[in-house]
Design a protein around this nucleic acid. Structure first.
Length: 709
DNA sequence: CCCAAGGTATTTTTT
DNA sequence: ATACCTTGGG
């Protein structure tokens, strides 16, 4: 295992049992180092696997790490503490729910649920949603929690508008308490408090965890850092791995400074740099290095490779986004015909909205593609509806679930009836479900019409309660949920494409339950259905689209972090798009954008293609953009400029010899007939033009041979 | 209570 | 362009 490592990797893997900070550049083999370190601890240092705590950012990364570790150790390990921050905190909170002041079946609120609850809180305070937007309140609350601040801690410093935010935060905390739910940030915060307030418990985990490893350390936030410090305050050996140049989540609270802070807080930290890149060609690496060197706040690191120089970076300047998409698709088609696999190719963009044009172009060309990101499976409205039925059946006190599905599909229960239920709660306390039972027993509480509708809902829920408690297999229960709730019928009746897709999703939901394996230990004795709910909240991204057929990968650059592809197209590299409009004029944000560009470029192994459009239709408006400043930061010698470039601030480019053709110009070819020049590439004897012919389609021609008229 | 028309906002996203 | 959400008429 150790023989495959380079000297730096080896020194990281076998570094002392003190603390280690590994600055691992892109493609420098950091995952191997982490896994090897764990294996080394077990095999040569006598560490029990369950005495190691390893934290990652995504479930996918955690899964990979587990698998690689198990295959090195040659055994399947049942009590491995490898997971995401949130997943591990969840585990601790379940185990110690009493000490954490949570009820046994506490549920997790995802971002969407959280927004709904916040909306209710805003409304209950009679505040104007325009003045106090849900999203603003939500990020206020989450930011506070991520800084470790409860509402009572902020109180002293409150003034002005913050006073209202604080009041909302307080009310929100109360609602969560009442509902027995915990949001994502709360998982971290509550877990920190659990450890901090229970010295014996902390002591227990101090002696349990002898080694702590953290991946993607540059993206940890304050509360996560606090958590690591708490758990490591005993005698654990801590190793954190990160790359300050790849920190791209500052906008959601990640603190790169944690890297510097680490050296201060953890005495005698050994610093190891992994700078040898095993992924990209020298050309790509040199360009990426040149780009990132424009950032001022860096710890400093220079990636190098023993690999080939490789192809130059292609830079294509298009007129508009359609032209850009067309160029990308043509290029892909050419690569495919040269034997490249579709799977080897990725198109990366700054924002999701940019995917549509690419998709359309790919469809037109008949190329398979797979899109990552967007609305994930368990976040789809119909799935969340089905989940809400399940939740309410298991826990009739779940008001959030109640509100969500009481009239979905519509069954004649409107705002008026709900208002009556809420009023009853306001004066008598309790939950919506309890209020419903009570008021239905009171004659004349509702109009006969409302009463009928409510009774129907009541008996539906009673029926579902029986079903989810009857001990059948989970998927059988779920099948009945979508059947009896009327969800299935509702979408079926729509008879539209969208409706049909939703029916498919609901069926998929049932079969997802079949695949679900509940591996938690007995301590956290949750029912299967309850475990399923927690699993879905924490790992909603896990249901990946079928990876069987080869397809071009489409995703945001953020989503591409940690991945690599032989060929990478980076599109929309324009001022206002990338760097995004909001970042322009803000040095800190610009540096993060530059890091994002760096991350995108370093995904490419062999060929990098960057494109920009002079005019782009965005949000329904046509905007003209200059090529991104990032392009100007790349050494010209590494670029193969296909067109444009003269629109860049650098002034008229010396890169391209004057071209005898204009874009849009009509030309005639001896055998292909009449066509229009779409683009050109290269120069001098290699000058090639792309011509769209009226009859034979679009072709690339070498001007020197084509004999165009 | 239901649906359809109109107004508004819109980087990036895991958990 | 569009998706989402609120609002007003049937």
């Amino acid at each position: 295992m150790l023989t495959k490592l380079n000297p730096e990797q080896l020194s990281a893997v076998t570094s002392s049992l003190g603390h280690t900070l590994v600055l691992a550049g892109a493609g420098s083999g950091k995952t191997s180092v982490l896994v090897s370190r764990m294996a080394w601890l077990v095999q040569t240092q006598g560490f029990a696997p369950e005495s190691i705590l390893a934290v990652t950012f995504t479930n996918k990364a955690a899964g990979e790490m587990k698998q690689r570790l198990q295959s090195i150790l040659g055994q399947s390990l049942n009590e491995l503490w490898v997971g995401t921050f949130h997943g591990l905190c969840h585990r601790l909170l379940r185990r110690h729910h009493v000490l954490a002041h949570l009820n046994e079946g506490f549920q997790i609120l995802d971002a969407d649920d959280q927004a709904r609850l916040i909306k209710q809180v805003i409304q209950s305070k009679q505040l104007d949603e325009q003045l106090w937007p849900i999203k603003a309140v939500q990020s206020y609350i989450n930011n506070q929690k991520e800084e470790g601040m409860r509402a009572k801690h902020v109180m002293a410093t409150s003034y002005g508008p913050e006073k209202t935010y604080l009041a909302l935060y307080t009310a929100y905390e109360k609602s969560c308490e009442k509902l027995g739910v915990v949001d994502f940030a709360e998982l971290m915060l509550r877990c920190c408090e659990l450890l901090r307030d229970n010295p014996q418990l902390l002591q227990h985990y101090h002696s349990k965890f002898r080694a702590i490893l953290v991946d993607e350390f540059q993206d940890t936030n304050s509360i996560q850092y606090t958590w690591i410090r708490l758990l490591s305050a005993g005698h654990a050996s801590v190793m954190v791995v990160g790359d300050d140049d790849q920190s791209i989540y500052g906008w959601r609270g990640a603190k790169i400074e944690n890297i510097q802070q680490f050296e201060r807080d953890f005495p005698e930290t050994q610093l190891i740099r992994l700078e040898q890149n095993y992924r990209s060609t020298a050309t790509i690496l040199e360009a990426a290095n040149a780009l990132i060197s424009h950032n001022v706040s860096r710890m400093g690191k220079a990636l190098w490779t023993e690999g080939q120089t490789g192809n130059k970076i292609l830079l294509y300047g298009s007129f508009n986004e359609l032209d850009e998409a067309r160029y990308v698709v043509d290029k892909i088609t050419a690569m495919i015909s040269e034997g490249q696999s579709l799977d080897a190719i990725a198109c990366l963009y700054r924002s999701n909205a940019q995917s549509r044009v690419l998709e359309e172009a790919l469809i037109r060309q008949g190329l398979a593609y797979r899109i990552y990101g967007g609305v994930r499976f368990f976040e789809r409205a119909e799935i969340k509806d089905a989940m809400a039925y399940l939740r309410l059946s298991l826990n009739p006190l779940d008001d959030l679930a109640f509100e969500r599905i009481v009239n979905v599909p519509t069954r004649g229960i409107g705002e008026k009836s709900l208002e009556q239920l809420r009023e009853h709660i306001a004066s008598h306390g309790g939950t919506l479900w309890e209020a419903l039972q009570f008021l239905l027993n009171k004659p004349s509480a509702f109009t006969s019409r409302a009463s009928t509708a409510l009774r129907a809902f009541q008996s539906l829920m009673l029926n579902l309660q029986k079903i989810v408690n009857d001990g059948d297999a989970l998927e059988m229960q779920l099948a009945q949920v979508i059947e009896h709730s009327g969800l299935l019928r509702h979408f079926m009746n729509m008879k539209t494409e969208a409706g049909f897709a939703r029916v498919e999703n609901l069926k998929e939901w049932v079969s997802a339950a079949k695949q679900f394996r509940y591996e938690a230990t007995k301590e956290e004795h949750l029912s299967w259905a309850n475990a399923f709910i927690a699993h879905v909240a924490l790992e909603s991204g896990d249901m990946q689209v079928d990876a069987d057929t080869p397809a071009v990968h489409l995703m945001t650059i953020h989503a591409a972090k940690g991945l690599e592809f032989p060929v990478v197209f980076m599109v929309g590299v324009e001022e206002g798009v990338f760097p995004s409009r909001g970042a322009i004029g803000d040095e800190k944000k610009l540096e993060e954008e530059r890091r994002l560009c760096y991350v995108g470029m370093t995904r490419a192994k062999a060929q990098l293609v960057m494109t920009y459009a002079e005019v782009r239709r965005l949000y329904g408006r046509e905007e003209s953009h200059r090529p991104s400043r990032f392009l100007k930061e790349l050494p010209e010698t590494l670029l193969n400029v296909v067109r444009g470039y003269d629109t860049m601030k650098k002034g008229p480019s010396k890169l391209i010899a004057p071209v005898p053709y204009k874009i849009g110009q009509k030309v005639t070819h001896a055998s292909f007939g009449e066509g229009i020049i779409l683009a050109y590439e290269g120069g001098g004897a290699h000058l090639t033009v792309q011509v769209r012919f009226q009859n034979v389609g679009t072709k690339w021609l070498v001007v020197a041979y084509a004999n165009l008229a």
